[in-house]
Design a protein around this nucleic acid. Structure first.
Lengths: 344, 344
DNA sequence: GTTTAGCACTCAAAAAGTTCGAGTGCTAAA
DNA sequence: TTTAGCACTCGAACTTTTTGAGTGCTAAAC
């Protein structure tokens, strides 16, 4: 634990990590001297590896197997990549752009597409969390009368996000009233964020003047119902990709993982956390608070859809993940999506 | 193949199927005499089983194993269940109703919820195909101006289905014009189905009078863009459930299945087919045209969301599925959804 | 003082060999 | 027609053996 990491140690550690990422097999001293042009004999490498093991950077599954990197080693490795700030290979960049057919899609669809994009280009799972509705800017509200007692409420945000809700009313409300209600609300709520809208509606419902205007009261009630829910959407795509990872080959583990991701609330926690900081962030295996994330890592980046509306997207894969490849993909995709979504 | 199925043969076949459904293990003559109160010795059962095998209803994986039912046997079995028209256990019925919290949801969300419902109550996969948009009845169209060159088009069907599309315009269109355009279109398209709307728009775009009214022309163009796509949505839920099925325990098979369902087009074909006929339909393993469906069966039923709008929902599980349980679930859910969705 | 060759040792995985028992088909008696 | 009896089959599960990649240590080489 004490000793400082020498330059040579660093190179060997890197070699182990890269080999392990490539093969998913414990890496032996021999393999390393062959694949990575180090002018060292296996014996020397062995010595160094023993040191690395002592430092908690490598572990051996059993005596006569090679070494595998620990989470601590991955962390070191990833940090050095992040520092280097590698650029995305131009080929990949083109691929991403090409696959990114977003024309005419509304934001929700675009995010789903982005998730799919992340999953196919990384060949792991893509995940995108939509910005909290609360941060969106109110643009317009509309009440569409479907039949005598059914009204469809449509809430449009400035960035094009649409939320609708089907409302059943006790008494029939005439069409003109619906229009007047919408006008009244649209005037009142212009330019507020959805969170502010919510407050404003509640405040307004308390106020004196509303007491005597049943139309307004009703308008407030309806809009309040519409805006009440704020379920953050998460788009998780490419789950089948993780089936290809040898570390999850056994059925029990697979099941566990799929079950874990079925409850999106876990994921939500994690993504929420990575929304705190800007830019690319990485959670490696045990660093994540999700027990079920054992053996998995998450590479995320924040993206913007407007001034204050920030969402998170990223890639989930095995801890043994091609970080060098994935990090730029996530980074670039986040920027691309920000560009495409930012209200002009 | 020749011989007719005797009453006794039928009972034994049924016993084999039910045991196999319960255990997923080949069923031996012994087991049957024990579990199903047949006053017969194993030897007799063996004789009968040999006959059944000859008829192509049973198969043995190898000499010293029990027998498993063939798809042909399942077909026979399922038909007899369908004839019997079992009712859903009242407990299950309550469970379904209770879990079915649909208040305030728009149709798309309700269908997704229904799919989840099917999956949890059956413990297989739930699948719901939304009715083709084309069959929906046009109710209203709305253009919301988001910024100078971005317009959000919202298309509302009579049943509450909403479809929106983000449009970029070359030149800025003033708000009043958007309102006039919407009014013009809404007047023209009232009460038509979406399919008819599409035709009508195209026809109108050809007509003389539009040539000289650029506003109308633009209105038509925008609405045509909005309505152009008709991607049928499919909601597939509970995929993790099939991981619990012993027959898919091995990783390769799982992967194959997940991959197959990732492309929803395959599923679409199959569901489209089952939309031809009314009521509960069953596709057993090899009967399905999907090669990948090997070992899987599909129980579907049509549902209605209006007069002519028909969708399909159902359960996908292993061929070795509890049909007696699943069929009533699917049947009842279809009816429930029809009731909830039918425009009052 | 590193570095490396050499060597005994370890241990999982693969291969080969055993045992076990559920299940069969056939025959002959009930 | 049914059933008891019995020899036979064959995969699953368990054991044993073999194999070889990999290790740690020691002592010689640089």
């Amino acid at each position: 634990m004490e000793e400082q990491l020498s330059e040579r140690g660093k190179r060997i550690l890197e070699a182990v990590i890269e080999d392990y990422i490539a093969t998913a097999e414990p890496v032996g001293s021999r393999t390393i001297t062959r694949s990575h042009a180090l002018a060292l004999s296996p014996a020397t490498v062995r010595n160094v590896m023993a040191d690395l093991e002592e430092m908690g950077l490598l572990a051996s599954p059993h005596t006569s197997a090679g070494r595998i990197p620990t989470d601590k080693a991955y962390r070191l490795y990833v940090n050095s990549i992040l520092e280097a700030k590698q650029n995305l290979m131009p080929g990949k960049r083109d691929e991403i752009r090409r696959r990114c057919r977003m024309a005419g899609k509304d934001p929700a669809e675009m995010l789903k597409e982005a998730s799919r994009l992340l999953s196919t280009t990384s060949s792991y799972m893509g995940v995108v969390m939509a910005p909290r509705m609360a941060a969106n800017v109110f643009h317009q509200m509309e009440f569409v009368k479907l039949s005598s007692h059914r009204i469809l409420a449509i809430l449009v945000s400035q960035n094009g996000t649409v939320q609708n809700r089907l409302l059943e009313t006790e008494e029939e409300i005439p069409q003109e009233d619906l229009v007047r209600m919408a006008n009244y609300l649209n005037g009142m709520l212009q330019g507020l964020t959805i969170a502010q809208v919510r407050e404003r509606l509640l405040a307004e419902m308390q106020s004196e003047k509303v007491r005597y205007d049943s139309l307004m009261a009703r308008a407030l009630a309806l809009s309040e119902q519409t805006i009440r829910t704020d379920s953050t959407e998460i788009f998780l795509e490419g789950q089948a990709n993780i089936l290809d990872q040898p570390e999850f080959a056994d059925a029990a583990k697979m099941r566990e993982i799929f079950r874990a991701f079925e409850k999106k609330s876990l994921l939500l926690d994690l993504l929420d956390r990575s929304m705190q900081a800007e830019g690319v962030q990485i959670f490696i295996g045990s660093e994540s608070p999700l027990l079920k994330m054992e053996g998995m890592s998450l590479v995320t980046s924040t993206y913007l859809t407007g001034k204050d509306t920030v969402g998170v997207l990223g890639v989930i894969g095995p801890t043994r993940m091609g970080y060098g490849r994935v990090i730029p993909i996530v980074d670039y995709t986040a920027k691309l999506i920000s560009r495409l979504l930012e209200s002009e």
